[in-house]
Amino acid sequence: MAARHVANPLRGVICQLSRTSVAQDGLAKTPRLTRSITTETTVSSPDAAQLYASANLTSSPKSTTTSTSPSPAPIGPQAVTTIIYSFPALEPLRFEYYPVNHLYLPTRRDILHRAIVYEGDMTRLGTASTKWREEVHGSTRKVRPQKGSGKARLGDKKSPMLRGGGVAFGPKPRDFSTKLPRKVYDLAWRTALSYRYRKGELIIVDESLEMEDYSTGYAREVFEAHQWGRPHGRSLLVTEGPRHERTNLFRALDGMGEEGRALTWEEVDVKDLLEMGRIVVEKGALARILEAHQTDLTKTKRLVNKLQ
């Protein structure tokens, strides 16, 4: 193998180049019959000045663009528009802009799948427990002689063969959790949020999701008015504040699980973000989620230290 490579060092490169050109031709000629895994990736990019300005989440770019057709995504930061709503009236208050790598990532199903499997493994209790033969209480006396009884050979009465004996290779409490690179998991978080954004199922609320009344009836009326309930695919409400600061909300939604759920930002995981019809999230909660899941975007501490 090595000799052949040495004999013709450029052969592999040439082969690869020819292969890619063929593949590109083929792709260009045949129509695309299947949907790509990264669907809906066309970005109509705003102006560069606007984009850089809007990397800061609270800024409101004043510059205007006239581009009407979607263009290929340029390298560098961009921003997507979101409406910030009031609650519970859901009046549009203003536009805010989020970086594309926060809320407009391509939908990577493989990454979402890995994150959900990772979370599922992590969530497993793993408490199944049985007694093996040495853990069963009892004597180690031989049940009957080795030979001459006409019956099977047996050791003590705790043998896995016997009723009341131990379990052979039975389950013991263990940790089922698997590993996933932090950067992949963080990307999955932002991919899940981006998926919601692309489908128009991410509603960002300015202040707090706290309700004025703690009754389930009131919450039902809110859900019905905004079409958030069961007929419209249920809703997940994510709060920034802890439960004791949103008592009315959590109390009201406690009795209407068929209409939706409320969770604090610390309780949410990727699977929750993908489960229901839409996500209603406090602006603060979204900021905290994004801040907590951007290790693949920021430089590591070690590198920063080295640079200093």
């Binding site: 109509s44 663009t65 006239t66 581009s67 009407t68 979607p70 997507v80 528009t81 979101t82 409406i83 536009f95 954004y197 692309r198 489908k199 128009g200 199922e201 991410l202």
Partner: peptide, 10 residues
């Protein structure tokens, strides 16, 4: 929805 607003310019 937000992506509609994002994509709409006219």
């Amino acid at each position: 929805s937000d992506p509609v607003i994002q994509d709409t310019n006219t």
